[in-house]
Design a protein around this nucleic acid. Structure first.
Lengths: 208, 208
DNA sequence: CTTTGTCGAGACTCCTAGTCTCGTCAAGGT
DNA sequence: ACCTTGACGAGACTAGGAGTCTCGACAAAG
């Protein structure tokens, strides 16, 4: 046994092992190739089923190399999502709550639309039901997204824009709930108009 | 080949075949047993993976009997969800929007809490990604739920309680979005307090 | 130049989805 | 009564994916 206990969330370096680590080092390029290939396969509408074999093949990597660093397929997908989402947060600051919300959701919807994020989300949510590790990544990921959005409400609160009994946690869940629900059910588009409507209704719910 | 094209949604009777149908008839008890066993296995936290074999075993039914009437596992789960959800809708009418909403979500949350509806929902959403038939059931199911909730907003609209630019479709998706998001992510409980908070914020978003 | 541990490749086991076949049984029709 | 049709439970069977194991090659350090 080596120490494949790579936290799927935080993997800055070797886990500070007792022994100084001898032997060949981990190939970082292979790691990146796996994560990129996973995203690519998820994006490709021609691919119906995501398998470890396909990921390894597409990444030009042996299957064992995948399993050496990730315990299950769910862990690979979870880390791919985590890496992908960490890239594009960017909080707006327009000076008004409804302006901030409109811009925040416009950007969020745009990022979601161009990729096949639905399949990724479903894969992770589904994996979280079975694997504790995937559930942890999902919890961490969503918590970071929520706290970003919550910041917009807190700023508005400090400006005195909110009703005193408005609850930022509820407002945040309303916003992301709307996003997830439309993404997963797919009955209505997540376009710029939807972002604007969402922002207005959310601002109305918060307004004093 | 027979005609196993049983619409998973609507299966009132035999499909009005050209031939008057000879031979032994479908065993309705077996059908009900399959759906009930599916719900039961989904509910049981001891069961981790739902398989057709387990369903058939638990229902006291041959595996082929399942496949004779449902094309895939997803179809079975989807129909189980559909049947289960059709049971408990019950629209409140308290005379005020916030009262109606509070009661609606209180009842909805309570129904969700007692069963393991999360696993069921995840299973269906996940199946909908792969199978058109499952997607159809999910779309139909969610559409019926939305139109029930939309009715509450429409009544309020007729009473003049809504802002003129409030959009019932957006409000409905905010409500169910909140529910789905908390159910799937599980970071906050879906209890009576949450129902009350949701109702108040939603009413505030709609109010003139 | 030896040790340690990663690499790609692929064979292997285990399990589940879905198919097929069997002997049996129920609902007609004649 | 008897025959045909098709559903029934049981279980063998195939196809394919998850995850494990082993191989020879190779890279990093002492």
């Amino acid at each position: 046994m080596e120490e494949p206990q790579v936290s799927a969330v935080e993997e800055s370096g070797r886990p500070a092992a007792a022994r100084p680590h001898t032997g060949r080092r981990r190939n970082e390029a292979a790691r990146q190739a796996v994560l990129s290939a996973t995203m690519e396969l998820l994006r490709d509408p021609g691919q119906q089923e995501l398998t470890i074999d396909k990921i390894a093949r597409a990444a030009g990597v042996g299957k064992q190399t995948v399993y050496r660093w990730w315990p299950t397929k769910g862990a690979v997908v979870a880390e791919a999502m985590d890496r992908h989402a960490s890239a594009v947060v960017e909080l707006p600051d327009t000076g008004s709550l409804s302006g901030d919300l409109a811009e925040f959701f416009r950007a969020s919807f745009a990022a979601l639309a161009d990729q096949g994020m639905t399949r990724l989300l479903v894969e992770v949510v589904s994996g979280a039901q079975r694997e504790r590790a995937v559930a942890a990544v999902l919890a961490d990921f969503t918590a970071r997204r929520r706290s970003a959005l919550r910041l917009l409400f807190q700023r508005a609160q400090e400006r005195g824009e909110l009703r005193p009994d408005a609850d930022p946690s509820v407002l945040v869940d309303l916003g992301y709930g709307f996003l997830w629900y439309r993404l997963l059910v797919g009955h209505e588009p997540l376009d710029a108009a939807a972002a604007r409507a969402l922002a207005e209704h959310l601002a109305a719910a918060a307004r004093r």
